[in-house]
Design a protein around this nucleic acid. Structure first.
Lengths: 346, 346
DNA sequence: CCACCAACGGAAATCGTTTGCGGTCTCGCG
DNA sequence: CGCGAGACCGCAAACGATTTCCGTTGGTGG
């Protein structure tokens, strides 16, 4: 190992290999890339390969991308890496991308439109082949820009109103309605919904699902809109809710909001599920931990699906569905258990 | 915007801008990069700038990197994106990197050495300027390789035995000892430690801290080594522990292991903290949720610190400490509360 | 023995930037 | 009016790969 300990060893280039193997650089290229059209004498190829790994040669992806006009890289915009729901999506996307030889560059937008715009600019300067966007708003200038430029992108989890976009989501309306159905079946008639921001499709659709289902059952649903998707906002919204006569059931538009409601409920002395039935959305690890009834979303599959869809678009493969709606299922846990007085965890 | 709706608009290059502004490409380059040495007639510069944004010109980071021999990109190897502890580190690293104009490419190794090797190869082909490694083992061929090539890297969270590496960690021995001190102070004398894999510095050091502290207090510490850092392994290890006479206190080498122990305890009918005091390590969001006593680690700071250290190394800035040890603090929560009979969560 | 063809591999152009070098122009001063 | 000093900016050579286009071999069939 590194016997030239002194200074950083220079990267060897295709020319170095060519010299070492006494062939032309073009021959090195042919020997190393297993393209079908390349016919090389086995002996020549062997000599090149030998020289290549004697020198520890690694082709420069930079130079190759410049010439080939593609980087085999995908960008991905997420509102928050530390959100476990998104982490699942990212993981699925990363693996699917890697499987097809693409790398993934992650960008944390913090759900801020201007950071989103900045990152898209950076990604496009870096010439990523396409991007996965998990942080869209409904009216989103960044997405409009990509649409206008016909720059390849896929929307994940949240849509953006456009009818022609490639999108991977779940059926939010049906899922939210399923939660309400479940709560009503337990006998609840005063249901609160802590909605996500209406500026996002997920927030708007889930609230719409709640409203529709409530109307169908003839029960009252009170909607409070949170400003962000965070636990803190769930707490804030719930504290406000509990000031008056508290509802008997609450449904957070995602698990974090529901956990915020849980914290507020505990502080208000409301026991879950005895005094307040509680449900969330996404089925993150936290939901499992808090024994929270929620909607299960196949996170990794969602990410993987989105990545594969984008790659299919990039490679010009036929696209079966432009608008993929994954199945989501109600998972009933202790937080809405009927007849159970109290459960303990710790 | 995009009035040529038909086909993908070709990216405009520096040459296009040069033509449009009736200058040489080199002049465009000078006009657009605010280097101190470049003297341009204001009028010329204005003409170039105008042409550039009329054409929506964006310099190709690819071509620039090729020429400049640096990509302003960092790679980062993590065992699992979906792990909230790592998510915090990643977030901190990503932000610090972005602040200094670097992008971050994430790679999920799944804690598998061969995937680690593959990813390092990919990253180096892409000519990232350096990498952050959060998934090292103690004897790690990949790290050895980078050391030998003098390729810039920083180890985060886990070290790798090398004395000369750039490393950002916490004082695992002291922190683990603090947990034992705390448990002993509550009167526990039969303490179990579910250790992380000894092949990692974190696993080995925390176990060592436990052993040392136990000896110092003259109490018995039983060590069970988990094979991975997962909740499932914690559960498995604990189930095994509980077969005989169960200990009165258990300490998981990270929060996930501790949560696994919690699940096993519940199944074994042991109440926490009444029958079993429980502690973890890292202070992840899950620990807060489960009201788990743990060691607080400043995750984002750790990631940010590591990124800044790497960038300092890359830019040839002076490096104060090669081996940064961040402070960690014991956070006492309900899972080790003295005198509390039972707490409920849901 | 010659012609022809396939197989092989060299030369050079290209991808989009940056930058050292030096040419031209403008100005001010003697 | 001549000359030197800057100022400004064009030229061309990199950076490291891929690929098209040919020229050269060597073998084979007539």
């Amino acid at each position: 190992m590194g016997q030239d300990g002194r200074h950083r060893r220079a990267r060897s280039t295709i020319t170095d290999v060519a010299k070492a193997a006494r062939v032309h650089p073009s021959t090195v290229s042919r020997a190393l890339s297993a393209q079908p059209g390349h016919i090389l004498r086995p002996e020549t190829r062997a000599r090149v390969v030998a020289a290549a790994d004697r020198l520890g040669y690694r082709p420069s992806a930079l130079a190759r991308s410049l010439r080939l006009r593609r980087t085999l890289t995908l960008g991905m915009l997420v509102p928050d890496i530390a959100n476990t729901f998104l982490a699942g999506i990212i993981k699925g996307a990363e693996e699917a991308a890697h499987e097809r030889g693409y790398a993934l560059v992650l960008c944390n937008t913090g759900d801020l439109p201007e950071r989103e715009a900045t990152y898209i600019r950076v990604l496009r300067e870096r010439e990523v082949d396409g991007v996965l966007v998990a942080s869209t708003r409904m009216a989103d200038a960044t997405v409009d820009g990509m649409r206008a430029d016909r720059f390849p992108f896929v929307l994940v989890n949240r849509g953006a109103g456009g009818t022609d976009d490639l999108v991977v989501t779940v059926d939010n309306i049906a899922a939210a309605a399923a939660v309400v159905d479940h709560l009503v079946s337990l006998g609840h008639t005063r249901i609160a919904h802590v909605a996500g921001p209406r500026s996002t499709t997920t927030g708007a659709e889930r609230a719409a699902g709640v409203v529709a289902a409530a109307r169908r059952h003839g029960v009252h649903a009170e909607i409070v809109e949170a400003e962000t998707w965070s636990e803190a906002e769930g707490y804030r919204a719930a504290s406000q809710l509990f000031r008056g006569e508290p509802p008997t059931a609450a449904f957070g538009a995602n698990d974090l909001l529901a956990l915020g409601v849980l914290r507020a409920a505990r502080e208000a002395g409301l026991a879950v599920p005895a005094d307040l039935a509680l449900a969330g959305f996404n089925d993150t690890p936290e939901a499992v931990l808090a024994d929270l009834t929620t909607i299960h979303v196949a996170q990794e599959e969602m990410g993987a699906h989105a990545a594969r869809l984008l790659i299919a678009r990039l490679e010009g493969e036929p696209i079966a569905e432009r608008n993929v709606v994954l199945a989501a299922a109600l998972v009933v846990r202790g937080s809405t258990a009927a007849g159970i007085v109290r459960r303990r965890i710790a």
